[in-house]
């Protein structure tokens, strides 16, 4: 059974992940959907395959869209979405990788996914899985955390080509990013693209554009 994007969107919208913030924000859905539908080499039957691509949701707050895509792609039953954040539910308001099939990292505190992603990319290289790609999704406000900038500078300097970052940019950083988000990566030697979050074909092209000698960032913008 194939679940469409529209059906996944409905799944995400019915998934209240945080009773304190009942207005569900699923602006990351397009990017996560395009990755799991068209880009990532992952298989819900082989979630521990060492050669798999990896998606690291660093911005763990408000994971409705992530949970909906994992359910749509068969990582766990869609019924799990109806009891999110219950005491016995494996799905919480921040994902726990040890409880959620297909979740590569536990997140919640901002600024951890990109440094972890650097390590995973180094590890894939060291274990001979040089083709395996690592995709890390961060928020534009999450970039405030300095740990990201340690990772951006280092990954650019060493040309960590199997590392990919998606910045879900809904213009939520309190002090903005004068000069643009992509410039922070470009100055460190990254390949960059800035696309409209709702344009799935443009996202697909940005996520799969070759960057053989350097890491790549896609800034996916949402302007409401």
């Amino acid at each position: 059974m194939t679940i469409t994007y529209e059906e996944t969107r409905e799944l995400a919208q019915r998934t209240v992940v945080d009773a304190r913030y009942p207005n569900i924000n699923i602006y990351t859905l397009d990017a996560i959907w395009v990755l799991y539908d068209r880009v990532l080499r992952v298989d819900p039957q082989r979630i521990d395959d060492p050669a798999r691509d990896r998606f690291l949701l660093s911005k763990g707050h408000g994971p409705s869209a992530f949970y909906a895509v994992l359910a749509a792609k068969g990582f766990f039953p869609a019924e799990w979405l109806d009891t999110v954040a219950d005491l016995e539910s494996p799905l919480g308001s921040h994902p726990d990788a040890t409880l959620v099939p297909g979740a590569e990292i536990s997140s919640g505190s901002l600024g951890h996914g990109l440094p972890l992603g650097v390590g995973v990319a180094l590890g894939q290289r060291a274990t001979g899985h040089r083709d395996a790609q690592v995709y890390v999704l961060v928020g534009d406000a999450e970039l405030d955390e300095g740990s990201n900038h340690e990772a951006i500078a280092y990954a650019g300097a060493v040309g960590l080509a199997n590392l990919n970052v998606i910045v879900a940019d809904n213009d939520s950083a309190s002090h903005g990013w004068a000069g643009g988000i992509a410039s922070r990566f470009a100055v460190n030697g990254w390949s960059t693209a800035t696309e409209d979050m709702h344009d799935h074909d443009a996202l697909y092209r940005a996520f799969t554009a070759p960057h053989p000698d350097r890491p790549h960032v896609t800034v996916a913008t949402v302007r409401t």
């Binding site: 951890h112 440094p115 650097v118 390590g119 995973v120 274990t127 740990s147 340690e150 500078a153």
Partner: peptide, 24 residues
């Protein structure tokens, strides 16, 4: 590939070590 110096970046030092562990 297995001896990595990240420079004077301790958050990345520990985070990247965590990522290496995730990669086995």
């Amino acid at each position: 590939d297995r001896v990595v110096n990240v420079g004077i970046r301790e958050q990345l030092l520990v985070g990247a070590a965590g990522g290496l562990a995730l990669a086995g």
